[in-house]
Nucleic acid binder design. Structure first.
Lengths: 221, 221
DNA sequence: CGGTTATTCGAACGAACGTTCGTATCGTCT
DNA sequence: AGACGATACGAACGTTCGTTCGAATAACCG
C-alpha cells in the first residue's frame, strides 16, 4: 500500500513520460517532478498539497497513494537529488588523480547537475531544515558525505602545495560551498554565460585563492 | 493609528530595554527583535503571529497595533537590517582609498554585522522572496545598492591590476556574496574561529583568487 | 467470468492560520 | 472630574491547511 513497503528506487530512469500515464514509477516521477517545481517556486511551506496536485494533474487525495505525507514527499525529492548528485560526482571523479583536477571536476559536475535540475538543487539548498527526525538525519548524512568528499579534495590540494599555513580548511570548504549553493539565487542558465564558463571561472578563482596563505594580523577570539 | 502615518525610524537606537516596557519605539524594537529571532528559528511561513506574540510577551491582537499585517512585520525587519548594513558599510569605508583595502573593509564589516545580528542577517538571506509588491521592490533596491557598492570595489581592484581578462565580474561578485550569505548556514560565533579571522581568510582567498585570469578552454552554449 | 488488488477521487474533518471586532485600561490634556 | 486618543487583549471570524474516509473505477489473475 504505502511506499514504505515498496523497494526503494533512488533515481528516476524514465525519460519518456511527460504526463501522468505509464507505470507506477513513471507516475511517481512525474508527481515528484511537479512537486519539485512547485516547491522551488513557492517554498516548502507555501507549496500546498493542493498546488502540487494541480501541478501534477492528480487529485489531492490521490497524492497520498504515493506518499504518506507532505514531509515524506519533500524527503523523496531531496533524497533522490542528493543521491544523483553523489553518484554523478563519484562517476566523474573516476580515474582522476590530480587533486586540482579533482576539484575542477567536482565544481563542473556540481554546476552541470545544477543547470540540468535547477528546481531540485534549489529545493536542496533552500529547504535544508524543513525535514525533521530521521528524514532530516538521512539527508544530513548524504550532505555530510558530499561535503567530506570535497573537503578531502581540498585537503589534498593544500597538502600537495604544502601551503596550508594559516588557512582554516573548514572555512575554506564552506566558502566554496557558499559560492556553489548560492548559485540558485542569481544564475539563469538561459541568460548568463555557459555553465562550463562559470564553472571554470569559479574553479580558477578558488584554486588561485588557495595559493596565498592568510596573513592573519587580527586579535584573538 | 497605523504605522504608516508615523514617521519612519530606520534603526533601533534603544539598547536599554529587555522586556516590553518603555516608549513606543522601545516596545516596537522589542517586538521586532522577538519576531526576528522567531522567524530566524522557524522560517517566515512557519513563524505564526501567535508564536511571535508569545515570544514578545504581547497578545496576538496587540501585534496589529504595531504592524498592519505579517508581511509588513517582515518588511520592517529586512528594511532596518539592510539599512543598518548599508550605513555601517559606508561609515567604515570613509577615508579608505585603496581598492583592496576597501574590499577587506567590506568583508570585515559584513561579518562583524553578521556576528552581532545573526537572526536579522539569516532572515535577510533566507527570506528574500517572502515579500511581495512594493515591499519586495524596496528591499530589493537596498540589496541592489549593497551589491553595487561591492561590485564597484571589485571593479576597481581588477582595473588597478589590469588583469580582468577573461573574468566575468558579475560572476565574481556573486561568488563573493555566495560565500558571505552562506555563512548563516554553518558559522557559529560561539564555537568557530573569531569573525575577524574568518573575515581575513575569506578576504585573502578572494583577493588572491582575482590574481589569475580564467583560462577558459570550454566550448560555447 | 468472478474476485481480489491497485489506483483514483469527491467530500469532508479538525486544526491552525492571519486578521478583525468590541471592549477595557491607561495616560494626558482641558 | 470628564473626555479623548493611545494601547492592550479575549474572543471570534472566515479561510486554508494537511490529512482521512468511503465509494467508485481500472487492472490483473484464477
Amino acid at each position: 500500500m504505502s511506499e514504505t513497503e515498496r523497494p526503494f528506487v533512488p533515481a528516476p530512469v524514465t525519460p519518456p513520460s511527460i504526463d501522468g500515464r505509464g507505470s507506477y514509477d513513471e507516475r511517481l516521477n512525474h508527481i515528484l517532478a511537479a512537486a519539485t517545481a512547485t516547491i522551488a517556486r513557492l517554498g516548502y511551506e507555501k507549496a500546498s498539497m493542493r498546488a502540487v496536485a494541480r501541478a501534477s494533474g492528480v487529485s489531492l487525495a490521490g497524492l497520498y497513494h504515493y506518499f504518506d505525507g507532505k514531509e515524506r514527499m519533500l524527503f523523496l525529492i531531496q533524497f533522490r537529488a542528493f543521491g544523483s548528485l553523489l553518484n554523478n560526482l563519484r562517476e566523474k571523479l573516476c580515474g582522476v588523480t590530480d587533486p586540482e583536477e579533482q576539484l575542477r571536476v567536482m565544481i563542473r559536475a556540481h554546476l552541470a547537475y545544477f543547470a540540468a535540475n535547477i528546481g531540485a538543487l534549489k529545493v536542496c539548498s533552500h529547504e535544508l531544515d524543513s525535514l525533521t527526525g530521521s528524514a532530516y538525519d538521512e539527508t544530513h548524512a548524504m550532505r555530510h558525505e558530499y561535503y567530506e568528499v570535497t573537503r578531502k579534495i581540498i585537503d589534498r590540494v593544500l597538502d600537495a602545495r604544502q601551503a596550508g599555513g594559516a588557512i582554516d580548511r573548514y572555512v575554506t570548504t564552506m566558502a566554496l560551498f557558499g559560492t556553489l549553493n548560492w548559485l540558485y539565487r542569481w544564475y539563469e542558465p538561459q541568460r548568463g554565460p555557459a555553465v562550463s564558463t562559470v564553472a571554470n571561472q569559479i574553479a580558477d578563482q578558488f584554486l588561485h585563492g588557495l595559493s596565498g596563505s592568510a596573513e592573519t594580523d587580527n586579535g584573538s577570539p
